[in-house]
């Protein structure tokens, strides 16, 4: 039997709304990619039924549009939570504005992507590199939602129709908007592969329960790492009160 030596502390990192956002977002992206791909390149499901008895392609589109709406609302909620959530959910994690964040990005690149050293990067929440890619994903999501709305609302009575049609036509029409929407789908697919792999990677290497933390919200952090982090917070922001700092017994 192998037993680890080090003391671990359980840290509540991902609040419930963050976890809900994550899984709704994940499910929505999967459904949107699948239905979107079908819409772009429909499979040859043929029958001898009259068109009036069949509506499967309509339902695929309905699913895509409805889930797209969920995706957008979910995203807006996360934007709100970036200001209301705990320190690990806050917006400044995702926007690399400080030197420390950039230093951490390069460190993570060296350690986890290029595998140049054994020594891990110590993070509690997102590492800076991951957080920055989530900002990228957020921007992609906004572009995806905007181009989607542009195509969805044409020739409808939707209240947003004048705006989206204006945007569509000033971008150069359907062709270009459709292409952007389609090509970005692949960006999401590539993101998913790398994201899931890196979760596996971190769980395997660092054994901090990162994979299950998105279910329960808790991570196992080495006690010395946590001590150092708490010291740093106390020094940098002594008045900062955070729901995460409340003791969970």
């Amino acid at each position: 039997m192998k037993i680890r030596r080090r003391n671990l502390r359980e840290v509540y990192v991902w609040q419930l709304p963050v976890r809900f956002f994550h899984w709704i977002n994940a499910a929505a992206i999967v459904v949107l990619c699948i239905t979107g791909y079908i819409i772009g390149d429909p499979p040859a499901i043929q029958s001898n039924a009259e068109a009036i008895h069949s509506y499967w392609f309509g339902y695929v589109r309905l699913t895509h549009l409805a889930v797209g709406m969920i995706f957008v609302v979910n995203l807006l909620f996360r934007l709100y939570w970036a200001f209301a959530g705990n320190r690990f959910a806050r917006w400044n994690n995702f926007v690399p504005l400080t030197r420390a964040q950039w230093r951490s990005i390069f460190k993570t690149l060296r350690v986890d992507i290029l595998l140049l050293t054994d020594k891990p990067v110590y993070d509690i929440g997102h590492n800076s590199l991951a957080a920055t890619t989530y900002l990228g994903l957020f921007i992609l999501s906004i572009i995806q939602a905007t181009t989607g709305f542009m195509m969805m609302f044409v020739t409808t009575n939707n209240i947003m129709e004048p705006v989206t049609t204006w945007g569509l036509q000033h971008l150069g029409g359907f062709f270009i908007v459709r292409q952007i929407h389609h090509i970005l789908m692949w960006a999401f697919i590539l993101f998913m592969i790398i994201h899931v792999y890196l979760v596996f990677y971190h769980d395997y290497i660092e054994r901090n329960g990162i994979a299950s933390s998105m279910i329960g919200g808790w991570k196992f952090i080495r006690a010395d790492v946590m001590d150092d982090y708490e010291k740093k917070i106390k020094r940098n922001r002594p008045d900062d009160s955070d729901p995460c700092d409340e003791p969970h017994e």
Binding site: P120, Y122, V225
Partner: peptide, 25 residues
């Protein structure tokens, strides 16, 4: 990863935390 990080995976080495080394905001 399995080659480069075998020490970490095998738990053969200590990686003590230096002062102020933990990242994150």
């Amino acid at each position: 990863t399995n080659i480069q990080k075998r020490k970490l995976i095998e738990n053969n080495t200590e990686f003590p935390v230096k002062e102020d080394e933990v990242d994150g905001i």
